[in-house]
């Protein structure tokens, strides 16, 4: 019973997400609305953590399996990918390293600055 209850809360939030997507004319997937509903629900204690935790963490754990069908779909998009293979490779390799470097540097710099500021106050 416990798992059915948790499962139904999660499905209900997914459904609410779909309703919001239908009402709000933005290119945002239903799952994002559902995610935000769940997050605010947990923060404001409308949804107690224990009422979704086990089933929710199970879903998160098995999520990689759910990407397989879309990944296999590459066999149908191969022709389209072939036409843009070089740009795709350059963009993928280049931006990944760049994003990591920028994010890390900015975060580290801001943390150090904050620490210094705190140091002066003390």
């Amino acid at each position: 019973m416990k798992y059915i209850k948790q499962f139904s809360i999660i499905l209900f939030l997914s459904f609410l997400g779909e309703c919001l997507k239908w009402c709000i004319p933005l290119p945002i997937p239903a799952s994002i609305y559902g995610l935000l509903l769940m997050l605010f629900g947990l923060i404001f204690k409308w949804i107690p953590l224990h009422s979704v935790e086990e089933t929710g963490m199970f879903f998160v754990e098995v999520m990689p399996y759910m990407f397989i069908p879309a990944g296999v779909g590459i066999m149908n998009s191969w022709l389209e990918l072939k036409g843009m293979l070089l740009p795709v490779i350059v963009i993928t390799v280049g931006t990944t390293i760049l994003v990591m470097a920028v994010t890390g540097k900015v975060t580290q710099y801001l943390m150090k600055k904050e620490e210094k500021k705190e140091g002066k106050v003390l």
Partner: peptide, 13 residues
């Protein structure tokens, strides 16, 4: 996938 994405809120919380 949609319910699983909704559940990403749990580890974030």
């Amino acid at each position: 996938l949609t319910p699983a994405t909704v559940c990403l809120a749990i580890p974030l919380y």
